[in-house]
Amino acid sequence: MAAKTQEEQRFGEMVDGMKIWSLYMPRPYPIFKQGHVEKTYSKPLWHLQDHFDPRNPSLVAPILDAFKPDFCNVHYLTGLGHNVLEEIGKRDIPVMYVMPDMALSCSKLTMFVDGKTCEKQCLTCKLSARSKRKGIRATRRIGFCAPSRANLERNARFQPLADYPTAHILNANKYPTPTMARSPSETVRFIYAGRLESAKGVDVLLSAAEMLKADFDFTVKVVGSGAAEPDLRARFDHHDWIDFTGHVPLQQAIDTIAGSDMLCIPSIWMENSPGVVIQALGMSVPVIGSDVGGIPELVRHDENGLLAQPGDVESWREALHAVLSDRARLTRFQTNAANRASEFDQDYLGAKYLAFMDEIRNFTPASSAQGNLADTSRNAASTAHAS
């Protein structure tokens, strides 16, 4: 993994029973400072180094030789260098490439620009994807896993994933247990939890809620911080039924969600598989979510929540109204959410990962099979000629 400073580098040290290597990569700034860079030339230079710097594989190669892994789980190569995949391929180490975002196909990781999802790649993303494709092709046994089908299918439009094993498996994250339970309330308690950015569509949720407040008793708690927070506060903070908490510790966020009646995720971009949705459903808190990306794979419309059109205030007003005007429906959503909690169990998901890793380990690429067949034919012909 990448180290924050040169002093924090580790070379095979035992930490909690595991050997750890942590490298400070040659970059204008460490990955941990992304988004806080003042020099404009630093970012493009950083990305060029992340794709092509020959020091990336040369730094990782000695670690591969020292540790001699039987299997490699690649979760996030950004910051270590995408060209290290070729070094793994040289050693024929089987690889599970987990795709938490669109990094294989987009240099910005999101394929979302100016408030819209990109339908095709720009020149920069094409060049980036071509470089990454070289690493894919250099790895004989590789498989691709994404926490959402939408993410898997979209990456497959721009990369040759169909030639390799693929799987849709949710992240096997372990979340803190809530320390409080939901208490009965006549007031319906909606909550948003996450970053406050324009792509998250929080303004859509709050605008829709404004249209209903005169007729229904409810509150909306907004948990999180981000670039859009000042604008959101300026527009909506005068309402006494809206509570902006700012950033809070994880345990407090978990407890706040657990004590709410319904989570709202109004994203307008293609969310992969939002962890906050999994947390909520696992705590029997149903969800109103945008019908985009991986959200509809978690939220089953009119079963454990509702789906609304991303960016559409009227669609979100209708979804909120459907819950506020029918408390029996809300109760049914909560019961159904509880019944699906086992689907997010860490051991259940871990078993699916292990099965997929075994599939990758035993994978024979079509080109390799053809090559082996050709070798067999040539050997047979040579034997016949000798006879």
Score class of each variant (00 low, 15 high):
Leu80Gln: 14
Leu80Thr: 14
Gly81Pro: 05
His82Ile: 07
His82Leu: 13
His82Cys: 09
Asn83Trp: 03
Val84Tyr: 10
Leu85Met: 15
Leu85Cys: 08
Leu85Tyr: 03
Glu86Ile: 08
Glu87Leu: 08
Glu87His: 04
Glu87Cys: 11
Ile88Arg: 02
Lys90Val: 02
Lys90Gln: 13
Lys90Arg: 14
Lys90Leu: 15
Lys90Trp: 03
Arg91Lys: 13
Arg91Gly: 11
Ile93Pro: 02
Ile93His: 07
Pro94Asn: 05
Val95Trp: 01
Val95Leu: 00
Met96Ala: 15
Tyr97Phe: 15
Val98Met: 14
Met99Asn: 03
Met99Lys: 01
Pro100Phe: 15
Pro100Asp: 12
Pro100Val: 11
Pro100Ala: 13
Asp101Ile: 07
Ala103Lys: 11
Leu104Trp: 01
Leu104Val: 01
Cys106Leu: 01
Met111Asn: 01
Phe112Ile: 02
Asp114Val: 05
Asp114Pro: 04
Gly115Leu: 11
Cys118Phe: 00
Cys118Pro: 00
Glu119Tyr: 05
Lys120His: 08
Lys120Tyr: 06
Lys120Glu: 15
Cys122Val: 09
Leu123Trp: 08
Leu123Gln: 07
Leu123Tyr: 07
Thr124Pro: 05
Lys126Phe: 02
Lys126Met: 13
Ser128Tyr: 12
Ala129Pro: 04
Ala129Glu: 01
Arg130Asn: 11
Ser131Ile: 09
Lys132Ile: 12
Lys134Val: 10
Gly135His: 04
Ile136Pro: 03
Ile136Phe: 13
Arg137Glu: 14
Arg137Lys: 14
Arg140His: 11
Arg140Leu: 10
Arg140Ser: 15
Arg141Lys: 15
Arg141Ala: 12
Ile142Gly: 02
Ile142Ser: 05
Ile142Tyr: 02
Gly143Lys: 00
Gly143Val: 04
Phe144His: 01
Ala146Trp: 01
Ser148Leu: 09
Ala150Arg: 03
Asn151Pro: 01
Asn151Val: 06
Asn155Glu: 13
Arg157Gln: 15
Phe158Ile: 00
Phe158His: 12
Phe158Gln: 03
Phe158Val: 00
Pro160Gln: 05
Leu161Ile: 00
Leu161Lys: 00
Ala162Ile: 02
Ala162Gly: 11
Ala162Arg: 08
Tyr164His: 10
Tyr164Ser: 03
Pro165Arg: 06
Pro165Phe: 06
Thr166Glu: 04
Ala167Asp: 03
Ala167Lys: 07
His168Arg: 15
Ile169Thr: 05
Ile169Asn: 09
Leu170Asp: 05
Leu170Met: 14
Ala172Gln: 06
Ala172Phe: 07
Lys174Trp: 08
Lys174Val: 12
Tyr175Asp: 11
Pro176Ala: 11
Thr177Phe: 08
Thr177Tyr: 04
Thr177Met: 14
Pro178Trp: 10
Pro178Lys: 05
Ala181Ile: 11
Arg182Gly: 05
Ser183Cys: 09
Ser183Met: 14
Ser185Cys: 09
Glu186Thr: 13
Thr187Gln: 14
Thr187Asp: 00
Val188Trp: 10
Val188Ala: 12
Arg189Gly: 07
Ile191Ala: 13
Tyr192Leu: 09
Ala193Ser: 14
Ala193Met: 15
